[in-house]
C-alpha cells in the first residue's frame, strides 16, 4: 500500500513537470498554429540560465528558480522572433514553422554544447531537504515543492488567460485569427506573449527537473517528447485535456515501473496513446469543433 502511494506521488510529480511542457506545447499550437519542437532547447536554455544565475549572481534557491523562469521567457521570445514572426503569414506555415523550430533547437543545442561542454550540471535543491510524514507516507519537501510550484504556475497561467486582456486576445486568436485582427489584436505581438508565457512554463519545468536529475545541452529532449505525447493524448489546444493526460500518463509511468518494469514504460504509454487516439482522434478532451486549418 505504502509503495503504491509513494509511486502515485512520484507519478504526480513527474506529471507536474511534464504537464507544464505539455500545456506549453498545447497553447502554442492552438493559439499560434505553431508546432513548437524547440521546447527541448528552451528547456536546456532555461536550465543553463538558472545555473549561470546561481554561479555568478546569487545562490539563493528561490532566486535561481525565478531566474530559470526568466531564462525560459527569453528562450521562448527568441524562438518567436526567429521563427514565428518571419514565417507566420507565409504559405505552408505549419510545416515550415515546425522545421524552423527544429533548426533553432539544432543551432541552440550546438551553441550550448560549445559554451558549456557536454558535462552535466546540477542545480541546487530549491525546497530544502525536510521531510513530512502524513499517514505513514514520507513526503520530501522537494516533491511537494514541485507539485505546488507547478500547480501555482498553471493556475496563474489559466487565470491570466481567463481574465486579462492579453489572455482574451490569445483565446480570441485561437478561435478566429482573421476576426482577431479586425478587433485590433496583433498576431505578432500576441505571438510574443504566448511564447513568453509558454517559455516561462518550460523554464519552471527545466529548473524543477534539473534539481533532481541533471542538466546537459540536450537534456530537454526527453521532457519535450514526453510533453508532446501528453499534449497529444490530451488533445492539442486543450489545457484541461493536457492536465488530465499528464496525470494519466504519470500514473501509467508509476504503475508500469512497479508491475512490469521500467523498460516498458514507453511501450505502455504509447499503446495507451494510440488506443485513445484511434477512438478519439483529437485526444481526451479533444476540440469539439474542427481544429484550426493552418
Amino acid at each position: 500500500m505504502n509503495d503504491i502511494v509513494f509511486l502515485l506521488i512520484n507519478g504526480i510529480t513527474v506529471a507536474c513537470i511534464y504537464g507544464l511542457v505539455a500545456v506549453a506545447v498545447s497553447i502554442t499550437w492552438s493559439a499560434l498554429g505553431l508546432l513548437n519542437l524547440s521546447y527541448g532547447f528552451i528547456f536546456s536554455f532555461a536550465g543553463y540560465g538558472a545555473w549561470l544565475a546561481e554561479r555568478h549572481l546569487w545562490g539563493e534557491p528561490i532566486f535561481v528558480l525565478f531566474m530559470g523562469i526568466a531564462a525560459g521567457v527569453v528562450g521562448g521570445v527568441l524562438v518567436c522572433l526567429l521563427v514565428f514572426i518571419p514565417v507566420h503569414d507565409k504559405p505552408n506555415f505549419t510545416i515550415r514553422g515546425m522545421i524552423g523550430t527544429l533548426a533553432v533547437s539544432l543551432i541552440g543545442g550546438q551553441i550550448l554544447l560549445q559554451s558549456f561542454g557536454p558535462k552535466a550540471k546540477l542545480l541546487p535543491e530549491f525546497f530544502g531537504y525536510s521531510k513530512i510524514k502524513i499517514l505513514d507516507v514520507t513526503l520530501t519537501a522537494d516533491k511537494i515543492g514541485v507539485i505546488i510550484s507547478s500547480i501555482i504556475m498553471l493556475t496563474l497561467v489559466v487565470k491570466w488567460m481567463k481574465s486579462s486582456r492579453r489572455g482574451l486576445e490569445i483565446r480570441a486568436m485561437m478561435m478566429n485569427p482573421h476576426a482577431a485582427s479586425i478587433v485590433g489584436i496583433g498576431v505578432r505581438k500576441t505571438g510574443i506573449y504566448v511564447m513568453a508565457v509558454t517559455g516561462a512554463m518550460t523554464g519552471l519545468s527545466a529548473a524543477l527537473l534539473s534539481q533532481t536529475y541533471y542538466l546537459s545541452p540536450f537534456s530537454g529532449l526527453t521532457p519535450m517528447i514526453k510533453g508532446v505525447s501528453i499534449a497529444l493524448l490530451g488533445g492539442l489546444g486543450s489545457v484541461r485535456g493536457a492536465v488530465i493526460a499528464a496525470i494519466i500518463l504519470g500514473f501509467n509511468e508509476a504503475l508500469t515501473t512497479k508491475f512490469i518494469g521500467g523498460r516498458y514504460v514507453l511501450i505502455t504509454q504509447f499503446t495507451l496513446i494510440i488506443i485513445v487516439l484511434i477512438f478519439r482522434p483529437r485526444g481526451i478532451a479533444g476540440i469539439l469543433d474542427k481544429a484550426r486549418e493552418a
Binding site: 508546432l35 519542437l37 505549419t94 515546425m98 517528447i225 508532446v228 505525447s229 499534449a231 497529444l232 492539442l236 514507453l266 504509447f270 496513446i273 494510440i274 487516439l277 484511434i278 482522434p281 483529437r282 481544429a291
Partner: peptide
C-alpha cells in the same frame, strides 16, 4: 485516423 501533425507528433514519440 489522425490528421497530419498529430500523426507527426505520434511518430516522433514512436
Amino acid at each position: 485516423r489522425l490528421d497530419g501533425f498529430y500523426y507527426g507528433l505520434l511518430t516522433l514519440g514512436l
